[in-house]
Design a protein around this nucleic acid. Sequence first.
DNA 1: TTTCATATGTCAACCGGATGACATATAATT
DNA 2: AATTATATGTCATCCGGTTGACATATGAAA
Lengths: 322, 322
Amino acid sequence: MKPKISDVAKVAGVSPTTVSRVLNNRGYIGEETRKKVNDAMKHLNYFPNDVARSLFIKKTFLIGVVFPTTSNPFYGQLIFHIENIAASLGYKILLCNSQGQEDKERSYLRMLQRNQVDGIIAGAHNRGVKEYDIPTLPVVGVDRYLSKNIPVVSSDNYDGGRQATQLLINKGCRNIIHINGPSYLETPANLRRKAYEDVMKENQLTPITYETAGDNQAVIQQLFDENPLVDSIFASDDLIASAVIREAKLRKRNIPSDFKVIGYDGTETTRLLLPELSTIQQPIREIAQKTIDILIKEINEEENHSEMETILPVRLIESETT
Amino acid sequence: MKPKISDVAKVAGVSPTTVSRVLNNRGYIGEETRKKVNDAMKHLNYFPNDVARSLFIKKTFLIGVVFPTTSNPFYGQLIFHIENIAASLGYKILLCNSQGQEDKERSYLRMLQRNQVDGIIAGAHNRGVKEYDIPTLPVVGVDRYLSKNIPVVSSDNYDGGRQATQLLINKGCRNIIHINGPSYLETPANLRRKAYEDVMKENQLTPITYETAGDNQAVIQQLFDENPLVDSIFASDDLIASAVIREAKLRKRNIPSDFKVIGYDGTETTRLLLPELSTIQQPIREIAQKTIDILIKEINEEENHSEMETILPVRLIESETT
DNA sequence: TTTCATATGTCAACCGGATGACATATAATT
DNA sequence: AATTATATGTCATCCGGTTGACATATGAAA
């Protein structure tokens, strides 16, 4: 059986209250007593039961983290930073991979509430899921609008979209096409597309957008077939950009002289696996930091309604595909 | 204030015990009563407090998951599957990114014990960390030997190493060099290197191994400088393989005619970003599945000491770099 | 009519730890 | 000698839910 406070007390020859005092550093404790208690804890291999503690203090130091999947390099890296920063502040992460499925998302939210998490960070959100609006529970969205009352942190998607498009234009491209993932998500990432359209129009060019739905390759082939004159593509993430490069090579397009590609995200993994890809890099660490800052403030009820939307700057990485 | 069982009881006009009976489906419950209780729960937006529940039943349905970082595509994908399968079985994941640091690993282990996790899955392990040997707590290792008493699940690293090396030999290579990450980890992955050495010797070839330490690029440059005749490289993971490809291109080596590269892991992300890379693909989903199977069995004390080491088959993916 | 399965309530104990109230004792200050 | 800061103990209560024991009531089957 796991030792409890009373077992420690017995071994140390003190009262359970004294042990609790040592553990929580409350009231007066003598140096020798503190030592006796600590020795007893070591001897018994005692670990305080945080479940019991949480029940009493009504705080778990748990943060629920809901994203589509850790498998995606962007989310993987973001979650890494979130976990790291949270850990340094004494918070722990309950991980949820919603896979973009409404029912999973909903059941994760129930689970998190049952587990009495102190707050939720979510970057997954399907239109149908209204359950994020929980009056008693702090929530922060990353790159997703969850509700009017929930703060969002994202990078400057509009500026990123402008920079990417402008770069292609500066390099002499005229038949620039944009590809993005499913747009049914209420996401600030849609601003990338908006920026693309704006910049194109400002330059008297016609914006054309394709949308992938799971199978990138099919859409990309269709894009090339339907637009033989396309001279460049702005992809809304690096994975799509990579697929574009592949298809362009199959079609004997010469990159970057004859055909240019720019992606979006600039994760560590992409930088390692596909360093030649030009891309718009999101400040992932900073997004994680800001998200946690805001969440912790909400948890501590230092409400700060000035921060309903936080937008962090992106960085253009020009490499060999533009 | 969050509603509790007694609040639900009041609204439903029944006793707290009856509510608990409905929640746990115990004893006799009338259909109308069940409905009244469920309606009351919906009306109050009641969620059972799993912290209180866990305290009493002495089970949290929490699994601690300790890996170096979700940012790495292999771990990201593995953790995704672990979380997924665990969720389908009613278990939740407490995420820990140890970053290969002993002190972090140790403090995570303490944290997990305080949180009364039902079990731990760990793929991080520094030699100095003996704390995994916790008599009362089920632990399963993934691709890492944690202790004599802890089951390990891995893919067939030796066979993978053999296949990779053999492929290069079959393609006519003779000056094959192996690169792997830091080998101070007690990992079955060292078998990849062992297999490489064995196959080389069987073919009267001299094995040469380089080891990276954080900075891949420097080691790779050194490798090329010191071995001008090198005609192929077997890298112990895809990220290193990618760096090798890059350096080879800089040195005007023609892949695959003049120079060949094979990697290891074959994650989704690598397949998307670098599909041309030949690699040994690990069965990540199956590793996750088997790991959880074993862990859950241990948790339920269906001890199965026949499974101290589980080895799953790998798959050679031959693409364009060999 | 008796027995029994069904249905619900009351009550108390328990899970492990936190905390406030209060008692007691020693040593240091005033 | 009186006061006070320090140190520790005892005891009861609470956190929210679970569970076993026991009482009670109804309708159906034996």
